[in-house]
Amino acid sequence: MPCDFLLVEAYDKIVLAKVMKERLLDPVSIASLSEGLSELVDRHPRINLVIDAGDIGYLSSAMLGKLVALFKAIKAAKGRMAIGGVKPSLMPLFKVTQLDKIITFYPDAGQAVTEFRRNPL
């Protein structure tokens, strides 16, 4: 079942996925988003995925684990992934869990798209 809070726009080889949910704490939401994002990776070979996280206010370590799994799948498919628009109050979460060392973050999703366009794979 497609994730009902994921808005996807694909232009050229860049896929922008906006997460339209504030809380990513319950198992159903986490599984739905994870499946929705994984489908994008399956559908777009060597995907350039930009996740717009601007609406997210809460996410659990379980969701962080899903993002790591997604990152590994994209890396294995020789694609790339970036996250844009993380709320400043949430950024320490990515820093303390050191995800900022493996995933590229941008102040907003538009900047990530611009950067991917400027430096195509």
Partner: peptide, 21 residues
Amino acid sequence: DAEDPESLLLEHGRGIRIMSE
């Protein structure tokens, strides 16, 4: 172990780090 670079790509084990922060 949060200090172990190998743990960066694990898909679990971050909850305690979040709480400790």
